[in-house]
Amino acid sequence: MKALFSLIVVLVLAGIAYAGAGLAHLQFIFGVVIPYLALVLFLGGFIYRIVKWAKTPVPFRIPTTCGQEESLPWIKQNKIDNPSTQLGVFLRMVLEVLCFRSLFRNTKTELREDENGPKLGYGSSQWLWLFAICFHWSFLIIILRHLRLFLEPIPAFVTVLDQVDSVLEIGLPALYITDVLFIGALLYLFLRRVVIPQIRYISLAADYFPLFMLLGIGTTGMLMRYAYRIDLVAIKEVAMGLVTFNPVIPSGIGSLFYVHLFLVSSLFAYFPLSKLMHMGGIFMSPTRNMINNNRRVRHVNPWNYPVEVHTYEAYENDFRDKMIKAGIPVEKE
């Protein structure tokens, strides 16, 4: 029901855009006003969340570690999994952000039956890592490819990405490799939540909704490229108008483009409120961005503030006579 509810919401959003731009002729609303509003909500929400996280005190030094801590000289330290320097933290973050290093270690746990009864077993499970990295890198490349619509002249690296992405030269126009990987990875992430009972049990509508939104964006984008030919010149005119704050709405673009643009705008507006904020949150996570130097440097709790204290000396001065009568030892007679 959670997945069905999320799917219905995405279909309703697509229907609103189709009806508004195609039937009610509100192209300016869906092509200019809503994208600008979504961008403001995205930037404002993103900055607010990052600033809020940055201001949150960290009372303990809590880096997650997976290897040997810096210790005696003859004990080999794992300088990336248990960093004791800023360089080690930087390398760890780079591998985490670009390669999903911690996810690569993903293991599955299950009870296995043998002649001695059930036994707890561990096994490697890198499928999630593989499809996650395919999705994220494909998404990044697709976004970079779209820069050709917003920039003039088109940067050289965008042209190179376009050529490499379509190197298989399948069909006309050529099929992009990242389009296939993007949709395939999203389908795997969706099926994983539906098929595996434990993951289905903990999945919420907020977990399904971004998947369906991204599937809707990818599907409408592929339909515009491979099925329903859209005027790319007119689309670039719209994109350049938005970037230069001189919006224009050419005629004859087609309702499918506005559905695609409205889904993208909805995702942008929803982004700061969702779990998708892990894109910025990974850099603010104390389990990743802190040095593990507890033995050398005392971590001072930033929540500490001066308070009035009652020392033991003052306590003894107040109750010395009573303590002596009760037989309690005192430091001063």
Rank of each mutant, 00 (worst) to 15 (best):
Y176S: 04
P272I: 00
W127H: 04
L261Q: 14
M93C: 08
T107F: 08
S265R: 14
V10P: 00
S102M: 10
N293Q: 07
R229W: 10
V94K: 13
H299G: 01
N294W: 08
Y18N: 13
A21R: 03
I196H: 07
F131M: 09
E316D: 12
S125N: 12
R295W: 02
G216H: 15
F5H: 15
R320A: 15
M290N: 13
A205Y: 08
L140E: 07
L147D: 06
N293H: 08
V164T: 06
G123D: 09
M1Q: 09
F283N: 05
E313D: 15
P57L: 11
V97P: 00
P197E: 05
M93K: 13
K275V: 00
K79S: 04
R92W: 05
F46Y: 13
E113Q: 11
Y201V: 05
S125M: 06
Q77K: 04
E313S: 14
F60L: 15
L175Y: 03
K236V: 02
G22H: 04
E70W: 07
L276H: 01
F262V: 04
K322F: 01
F182H: 08
I170E: 06
L172D: 07
P63Y: 15
M290C: 11
Y36W: 10
H25S: 13
L175N: 04
I196N: 06
F46A: 11
V264K: 04
Q77V: 08
A24P: 04
M279V: 05
I133L: 10
N289Y: 13
Q198M: 05
R229M: 14
R229N: 13
A17P: 14
P73R: 03
L37W: 09
D179F: 02
I34W: 05
E70F: 09
I249L: 14
A156Q: 07
